[in-house]
Design a protein around this nucleic acid. Sequence first.
DNA 1: TTAGGGTTAG
Length: 583
Amino acid sequence: MTKHLHLIPLHKNTKFLSLFHTNKSTIFTKASSFTTTTATPWNTHLRNLSKHGQYNEALILYRQMLQSGATPNAFTFPFALKSSASLALPITGKQLHCHVIKLGCEFEPFVQTALISMYCRCCTASRYLWLGMSLHCLNVKCGLVNDLAIVNCLLTMYVRCASMELARKLFDHIPGKGLITWNAMISGYAQNGLAGEVLELYHEMELLQVNPDAVTFVGVLSACANLGAQKIGFEVEEKIRSSCMRWNVFLKNALINMYARCGNLAKARIIFDEMPEKSLVSWTAIIGGYGIHGLGNIAVELFDKMIKTGIQPDGTVFVSVLNACSHVGLTEKGLNYLDLMKREYGLKPCSEHYSCVVDLLGRAGRLEEARKLIELMEDEPDGAVWGALLGACKIHKNVELAELAFNKVVELEPTNVGYYVLLSNIYTEANNSEGILRVRLMMRERKLKKDPGYSYFECKGKTYLFVAGDRSHPQTKEIYKLLNRLEDTESEYGGASKNGQEVINHELPNIIGVHSERLAIAFALLNTEIGTDILVIKNLRICNDCHSFVKRVSKIVDRLFVVRDVTRFHHFRNGTCSCNDYW
DNA sequence: TTAGGGTTAG
């Protein structure tokens, strides 16, 4: 069902009736006090409402403006259009566009930026890129592209359509880039998961002595969170503190998220606790942080506290709490949350929620229930949902159901190599060589190759990256020596591997090596000080073999602390363990 | 008076 706020057609000049109320701030005079039919006071009012995020009220005011007989002008539409975009009301946006055309304001730069922004916010999917590109062409034809605001807006349009190459091309061709241009590109990279590019651009900005502002730092902190680059994040925090910049909720939330994702939950919690006014995003960031670090009980506790505080949850925070439940085995609690979100808050669970719940049931071994839940889904399940079931089949060695989930998932995501690797590993554990060959053949026919996975460890401000069997690090000798020692000791605990070498698949020659995780762990042990550093190994979303290795090593090395199911120490592409690189 | 911002799994 598409939502929209019905706007009175322009020709209807009905008697003015004020419905406008606000108790938010005294800056808003009551709309009912307007007896004028000139647009200016209405515009000022609209601008204030839009500036304070009161978009619904802004649209009501716009309707009242029409009813009063005032004629909107080029300064009215930007705020009305922004409101419809922020509320994701495309039909209202289209009605406003009609008004714009009727009043001949279409080619006013202010209106044009708002129109582009409105369309690309309401059609954010890449399939609407053509619409954005035609708007771009229109602006070129009308000679409006010399206006920096218009170009910035077009840049954001490409970003929202996830068309980063086109965005960068446009960015590189903008002659007098302003801070907003830089920010649009930096935020765009951050929003599209291109964290490395964010840091590169930020560095370039520093070299060109362009002064960053809060928006820049938000994008950079988000990138640090994704990379696990706590050191850079800390430097950004210091820079903000030493500057005269005022902290705002966006910055604090970005900081909480950065520390939480980097594993520094204590710091994240301090910032969160000290926030006088926490937004829903603040709660989501801290709950998500505890969740991914395997501290689901605290995540759940915080979620319940948030509800008691009177904060209205949204779909995103439910994803975080469901994920927290699944990682810590709070199956019933998670199922209750799914029910709560539908029943109490009228939120429709989407694919992300279902993939969490399938994961939740799957980890608990309730595979049949998970399958039934997928069948009951209102919308078509996406790859992530079937992928979660496939992952659960791997844990519980259910080949039959794995084949069903795999067939579904490759139909939806035929080029996602991770799923092929997962099924092949399920076949390997079941000694089903026919199955393994079948998957390999399928991959060869489809020309699919797995990207190498890697693990990294941040040490003294530098990030060290390892791929499987890596011998490029200057400390290689010491690393392998330590690994040998660890694994020799490990075998006393019943470990399977010997001498730092591991044969993953006996059928294939020359695919022997050491997993990247092991290299990173050995490197970390060599380069951190006993007594001062505790190594926290996070992310055991790795194969059973690597999982047991980490567990065994943690028994031997007292400063190795293992946390279940966390993501920041190791970084995997396609969500698979890098040991699959021996393919 | 227009353009840029934080949170979501595997």
